[in-house]
Structures are given as structure tokens and as C-alpha cells.
Write a protein that binds this DNA or RNA. Structure first.
Lengths: 173, 173
DNA sequence: ATCGCGTTTCAATATTTTCTGAAACTTCAA
DNA sequence: TTGAAGTTTCAGAAAATATTGAAACGCGAT
């Protein structure tokens, strides 16, 4: 192996390892994040067995997390003609990745919160005691804010790359 | 207990329980989220013993998570004159809560990612093989995007309530 | 200096989450 | 129909996280 190839292999290994470690901070499991890192930096689609070999994980683990990435929409299944084996390739466009993660986080984090807040706010609407009113008001404020965040997430998630960059640039400027 | 008081107690209990369950989804531990819910909907500051009684958790657990909330800046310590015991009260303004969480998430999620990306991008700058270039380019794109997100987070985290609402309204309109 | 009251720490334990490995299943070609 | 190649599932094992409970600690009053 040439010096260049070695340098690349090292950098990639670090990227995969660190991205995996970060997965935890993000509430995403380590293997899933590592596979994602591996796929994002692979020129060609790779198979379950490749993942097993690269990351030293079991077939079950590799399989489950590949399919989870496919469910998120961050990874696509690729079939090579004349081969039965499935290959996988990642979405590489960073804006696409961002919108996918935004949609997914909205679904997992914002929507359930909103449902809880709606319920608690509705159920205390006509309370008359000071404690009851205070509770209702606080929950209502949270509800309104989270509802608003939900709309923002929708908007951002449906923006085209160029438009988003333009808007953000204006905001930062 | 009156019917109103019962209704309130029930609603609050549900809010605390559900907010706690959601903590997991958010990568925040359940007790911490429950304490936060409790404090956000409490008119008066409450003590460690109150938390232990309400949530049926140990002193150590209550203590650790209260202090963690204080470290985040979501909760303040209150000393009542003539009392040695510490009481705690939550920040109740939703925009304040949002900016605090934004800052904290930036610190925990965005900054470490950026550090990794910087390192991996720097370390592969002068690779010449197609694989090396592809890796460098992909990492660089991620780096640029995350760096951008970092700036946006700073900006949003330092906005005044009114200004942010105005801007977001324009964006959604 | 000692006591009483509250805070803090931490080793042991419990719970939750992730991972493994093997069996069951599917599909397709012979 | 059989079997080779690949995929999927899942019960049990391992690892990571959260929680307990009790001891150590800090501090002001006596």
C-alpha cells in the first residue's frame, strides 16, 4: 500500500470512529453512525459483508442498522445486475442529508412533544384556580412555541438548497 | 381535594410523566426531564425533598439531576432567608429556554462534529488519488455545512425574542 | 469542639440499549 | 424439488446508563 493510500485509510478510519462516537451524543446508535460515515465516504456501493468486515460487527448488527438508515432515507439499496447480493449507497448531498435529518427529528422529537402539550393544554382549559391557570398558561406557551418550531421545520425541510443558503446568508449578514 | 385540584394534579402528572418519557428521545435522561417539567409548572421554588417525594426517586438521583439542570442554566438555585435548605426554580420563558437549549446542543452536538471534520479535512488536503480527493471533498462539504450551522446557531441563540419571532414570521409567510 | 441539618459523592445495583450468532426464511437456478 | 446464496429475525449475552442508598462532607449554631 502506498503512503497516500495509508494516509487516506487512517483518515477515513478516524472519521468513521469519531462519527460513530458522536452518534451517541446525537441519540443515534454508534454502529448506525459508523455505517453512515463509511457509506458517505465510499465511492462505490458496499454490501453487508463489507460493513461487517470494515467495522468488525455481526451480521445482525450490520443488517439492522443498514435497514434503519434506509428507513431514514439516508441510504439507498442498490442492485447490481447479475448479482443477488444487495449493495448500499449513501445520499451524499449535504443539503439533502440535512433535510432528511430535519424531517426525521421533527417526527421523533417535535411531533410527540406537541401531542403531549396539546392534550395537557386542552385538559386544563377551564380551570379557575390560580394554580390551574398558571399551569395552563405555561403549557400553552410551550405548545405555541413548539407548534411554531414544527412549522419552521416543515419550511426548512422543504426548501431548495440555493434558497436556504440565500436566506441564511441574509440572516447572518 | 376539590374536583378542580384533582383535574390539575392529573394533568400535571401526565405532563411530567410524558415529558420525562420524551427526554429519552431527546437524549436527556428521564429524571432530568421530569424534574424540569415539574419545575416549569410549579408556581413556587421546590426543594430536593419535594422532588424526591413527587417523583419517587432517591436523593442522589434528585440531587444530581437538579444540579445538571442548573449547569445547563435551565434552573436557578434559590435561597429563602432564614432557611438553610436550597430551593430550585426553573426559567419559564419559552424563548429563554429555547436559546439555552440551542446553546447547549451546539456545544454538545455541533462543535465536536466540527472539530472532527476539521481534522479529517486538513489531514487529507493534499491527497492526489481519486479516492483521496473524493474523501477530502466529501468531508470538506460536511465541514462547510456544519460550520455554517454553527454560525446560525450562534445567531439564533443571541436573538431577542421579538426579533426572532418577526424573522420567523417573515420566513413562514 | 460538637451537633444538627443539609449537601455531595460514589460503589453497588438495576435498567435499558445494543450486539451477537445462529436458526428460520426467501429466492432463484439447476 | 433441492440446495446454494443471501436476508431477516430474535433470544440471550454484553455493554452502557441510570439509580439507589449510605457514608463522607460542609457549615453554622450552641
Amino acid at each position: 500500500m502506498s503512503a497516500e493510500a495509508k494516509q487516506l485509510a487512517e483518515a477515513r478510519e478516524e472519521f468513521v470512529a469519531q462519527w460513530g462516537a458522536m452518534g451517541s451524543q446525537w441519540g443515534i446508535n454508534r454502529t448506525m453512525a459508523q455505517i453512515h460515515a463509511l457509506l458517505m465516504t465510499s465511492l462505490d456501493p458496499i454490501s453487508t459483508d463489507d460493513v461487517m468486515a470494515e467495522l468488525q460487527v455481526s451480521r445482525g448488527n450490520a443488517h439492522t442498522n443498514l435497514k434503519e438508515l434506509v428507513a431514514w432515507g439516508l441510504v439507498r439499496v442498490v442492485v447490481k445486475k447479475g448479482e443477488r447480493r444487495e449493495y448500499f449507497e449513501a445520499e451524499k448531498d449535504v443539503w439533502q442529508i440535512f433535510t432528511i435529518v430535519t424531517r426525521e427529528r421533527k417526527k421523533r422529537e417535535i411531533e410527540p412533544a406537541l401531542a403531549v402539550l396539546n392534550r395537557c393544554s386542552e385538559g386544563t382549559k377551564e380551570l379557575k384556580t390560580p394554580e390551574g391557570r398558571a399551569f395552563h398558561d405555561q403549557v400553552k406557551q410551550l405548545e405555541e412555541f413548539v407548534g411554531f418550531a414544527s412549522k419552521v421545520a416543515d419550511k426548512v425541510g422543504s426548501m431548495k438548497h440555493g434558497f436556504a443558503i440565500q436566506m441564511a446568508a441574509k440572516m447572518l449578514g
